[in-house]
């Protein structure tokens, strides 16, 4: 008899804004990580896809690609990796969107929204969990890349610090893109729509860039698009930091200062899309 009504009665005192926000986000992050660990096939597919891309691009396109003046497949292989890494982290977007749409669909978002928790925590928790998953994927992918012949410092000297910074920029880009995914997830009607809606726009974003081809060989009108593409900035930054071949010689500011550009773009995306997503979440009538 007492179990049901003897609880707190007067609910626990509220913790302060930031502390609560942080604590709630951690609780939700943990929840999403447990979830992910219980669906190992999702992690597996998340790994297989980029590994497949690396292998396909390297061995199918490798021989016919010209980077700068070189048609050496080895040059293309070393050129490609930064692009594949960046593409991989952006694909986490679709997972975040589908996860959030699924939570809405199942009524979990209602549950969360009826709890006295920090407003942004559900979304922050999801994006943080995706960040962890992305980091794991990236690690596996880097090992595969090394095995098939990626050599950091191939074209220019590098060091551990620069390589770490490159991966940090990749993770930041991935994190930024999960906020775009969050907004998509909150805006569509079904998890299925979130999956496809979260993916399709990534193809132009990742292909109209310097990721897989030398952007100076794109049609003239497309070149500025590729050079100012936030995605390209991170790819260029990674090539620069890893000492990979095929840096874009373009005068465009993001190509000249790719590390800063990548950082600014990513932070900007987080700020804008986090704001929009949290606002959407608060009024989500789903």
């Amino acid at each position: 008899m007492t179990t049901l009504t003897d609880g707190a009665r007067r609910p626990p005192a509220a913790r302060g804004g930031i502390a609560r926000s942080f604590a709630d986000s951690l609780v939700v992050t943990k929840r999403n990580l447990i979830r992910m660990s219980r669906i190992p096939e999702m992690i597996l597919f998340g790994l297989i896809q980029p590994v497949m891309f690396v292998i396909l691009f390297t061995y199918v396109f490798g021989g016919s690609m010209q980077i700068g003046n070189s048609t050496d497949p080895d040059v293309y292989k070393n050129f490609l990796m930064a692009g594949i890494f960046a593409q991989t982290v952006t694909f986490a977007t679709a997972g975040a969107g589908a996860g959030i749409a699924d939570d809405m669909h199942k009524g979990l978002i209602d549950r969360f929204r009826s709890l006295p928790m920090a407003r942004g925590a559900v979304l922050t928790g999801r994006t943080m969990a995706d960040l962890v998953q992305t980091a794991v994927t990236l690690l596996v992918l880097a090992v595969v890349a090394l095995i098939i012949g990626w050599r950091p410092g191939y074209a220019a000297p590098t060091n551990a610090g620069k390589i770490m910074l490159g991966f940090a920029l990749l993770l930041l880009l991935g994190y930024a893109f999960t906020w775009i995914g969050a907004l998509i997830g909150l805006s569509v009607r079904t998890p299925e729509a979130a999956t496809s809606g979260g993916l399709i726009w990534l193809f132009p974003v990742t292909f109209v860039s310097n990721a897989f081809v030398d952007s100076s060989k794109l049609p003239g009108w497309l070149q500025p698009v590729a050079e100012w593409n936030p995605f390209s900035a991170t790819v260029q930054a990674c090539r620069k930091l890893f000492g990979d071949p095929g840096l874009s010689p373009s005068d465009a500011w993001p190509m000249q200062y790719p590390v800063w550009a990548s950082l600014i773009y990513s932070v900007l995306i987080v700020v804008v899309f986090r704001t929009l997503s949290v606002r959407k979440y608060r009024s989500a009538s789903a």
């Binding site: 626990p12 005192a13 609780v27 939700v28 929840r31 447990i34 979830r35 009524g107 979990l108 009826s114």
Partner: peptide, 27 residues
């Protein structure tokens, strides 16, 4: 609030679900 469609995380155990909710009630 208890809903029409049972809003629990199906991949979490019963215990994990309740703990999560408790913590989000700031316990």
């Amino acid at each position: 609030l208890s809903g029409q469609f049972a809003a629990v995380d199906e991949y979490l155990t019963g215990r994990e679900n309740l703990q999560m909710v408790g913590q989000l009630y700031q316990m």
